[in-house]
Nucleic acid binder design. Sequence first.
DNA 1: GTCTAACCGAGACGGTACGTCCTGTCTTAGT
DNA 2: ACTAAGACAGGACGTACCGTCTCGGTTAGAC
Lengths: 203, 203, 203, 203
Amino acid sequence: MATAPTVAAAPSRGRPRSEHRSAAVLAATLAEIGDRGISGLTIEAVALRAGVSKVTVYRRWPDRIALVLAALESLPELAVPDTGDLVDDLRELRRHLLDVVDRSNLAEVLPALLAERRRSDHGPAIRRYVERRSQAYVEVVERARARGELVTGLPTELVVLMLSSPLALSVMNRDAPLTDEEWTTVVRVVLDGLARGDGRSRP
Amino acid sequence: MATAPTVAAAPSRGRPRSEHRSAAVLAATLAEIGDRGISGLTIEAVALRAGVSKVTVYRRWPDRIALVLAALESLPELAVPDTGDLVDDLRELRRHLLDVVDRSNLAEVLPALLAERRRSDHGPAIRRYVERRSQAYVEVVERARARGELVTGLPTELVVLMLSSPLALSVMNRDAPLTDEEWTTVVRVVLDGLARGDGRSRP
Amino acid sequence: MATAPTVAAAPSRGRPRSEHRSAAVLAATLAEIGDRGISGLTIEAVALRAGVSKVTVYRRWPDRIALVLAALESLPELAVPDTGDLVDDLRELRRHLLDVVDRSNLAEVLPALLAERRRSDHGPAIRRYVERRSQAYVEVVERARARGELVTGLPTELVVLMLSSPLALSVMNRDAPLTDEEWTTVVRVVLDGLARGDGRSRP
Amino acid sequence: MATAPTVAAAPSRGRPRSEHRSAAVLAATLAEIGDRGISGLTIEAVALRAGVSKVTVYRRWPDRIALVLAALESLPELAVPDTGDLVDDLRELRRHLLDVVDRSNLAEVLPALLAERRRSDHGPAIRRYVERRSQAYVEVVERARARGELVTGLPTELVVLMLSSPLALSVMNRDAPLTDEEWTTVVRVVLDGLARGDGRSRP
DNA sequence: GTCTAACCGAGACGGTACGTCCTGTCTTAGT
DNA sequence: ACTAAGACAGGACGTACCGTCTCGGTTAGAC
């Protein structure tokens, strides 16, 4: 989704940018990330691999980060799951995440982006990218609340954080992400805790 | 703490390395990380700032990552808290983490290290560094179990993950880490969930 | 003179080239040569300055050198002087040369063209351009011979070389070209030498 | 001659520049000028040919012109001839010039340098280089005057210009430089003219 | 009055070189 | 054996022009 490099565009002056090349560059970017990792990513190598000149890359994306974000956004987006059951919805989100991790080295790219967020001009763009991903969690949780499946006074943001951060961190920090069994356990503990009374039950 | 750059040392022949310079380099490294961030960190700038030649840096630490790890390890380590109460212990760990975040750009450095972990030869070293930090959590949780304060069949690793990942992720991903109140809520929900029956209580 | 860019033209089909634009490009070329010199001359800058697209320039002149030659040829040409006196004729040629030097940076352009002559495909064209300039000398000298004002067995080419090269070289090599007085002296010495017997008078 | 790239140097701090490499670069420069000409001269190609990194070239010579000048100055200098006869001395200078022309594409390089003289910061350096070459003429002429072989009231500079410019211009402008016979004729005409009375003999 | 070929601007494009920067290694002289 | 200074090969950076190419849109002569 969202491959469009620049915003909108004037009503087409001069030779139009080749979509074919844009796609080739994004594909090459993903491939390079796979081969050399984020820190080993070179515009030069991307251009070479895409069979494109450096300028053609720079024309579209001003720098490495913008390029990486565009490449990630070129991956197919998951439709927000709606199985009617919160845990099943969450499991679907987990499955999709692990999919993307496999396909795009997200386990390396994600922390790299988070690191960049503090410095670069792309802070907002990175924030938006991450946000968009967690948006699915927000919707799934709100739907569960609407169904009465989840009853809690906590802000959705906190609930999402509790449900998603163990998996996210395990992806970035552990040698392997949480297994299905581990993950199920974690989610159930959190949901049980919420059911018990929003953490306000203790003295 | 732990300034010792290399493993041990031969029985010392010739002029010994100046400890003063080692310290200057590590300080300069932290300062540079503060100014330019991890990705903008160059050995050259560090050497210049420390008033030291590049070779003097390379002799001690083989590359950027090793240098960064050494710099982080030069920060004062927290003694594992032991207040007799799990939540108080955890709160102390939180306080210390936020301290380090303030003092060393950890919010940027940590994800950068995690990203590097997948590729570089320093994977193990980085893993060890992160492990060492979470070790405090492990000890605190195990003590709580021994005291009977925490009763659960879950492996300590999972418990620690649930208790620490929301804060860790909020540090890396949010504009500001969890407030004390938010954090307290999260911890209590998790502990309630564990008390309720390890996530196995549901059908 | 000679603004006609290409040879002749097919019997004209389609929209004709705008003469207005051709002139604008040549003017812009002279201006750019004045501002940045021959070596700093870029087609892009010329096109920009002329308010014309690059293609419009390339359509008319295949490359930099052709463009420069065309620009020089667009300058007004001197009618070959014919005062009835050789020295006066030569003085008129000198005046005209210094004029062009002032108006077109010839002091820089001329050596640049000579340098290019050895390599580029435009060798012949450059040769022709320079030849055309010296043609005036040839005519003036031959007229003097016809009048009996100049009696010598030397080939006209050599006579012209002796009469013109000191001024030409002074234009290219000295900070200022020969003054009128210096120039007069030089010319008279050469003419005296010729009158003395063509350099064959010595043992 | 004078291969020394920079002025003098502090009392040697750090690793000294490799003379071997300096020489290799200058040789490569001359070779490249021979192959591709002045306008086709590329620092990158020179570095490649010399088996040296680009920075090594830039460290010594700030730009193309400085490099070319250094390369030319690395060629063996002629000892000023002193045969006791002016024409023989001049003939020796001619021989040497044609030698250098053959060995270093001077026919192309010289006009290129003259063109550059007007613009670049190297104006003075180029002027100095050319001056140094013509210095031999000055000495030869002054010696002839001292011997009484040449009697004239003209400033030496003008005499030198008359004696040298036909050959110089023929090198730059003609397809072949003046033959020995042509050259001899030219020189004798000039000397005869000077003997006749410094160009002041005419009304 | 349409055709329609050549013009024109804008700007994309592959390519080459630019001059700079940093890396990690090396070579000096000096401590 | 350490140190500071700095040379060095290598490799990527981001930029500038080159000369070519596609676009959409004129413009004038031929039909």
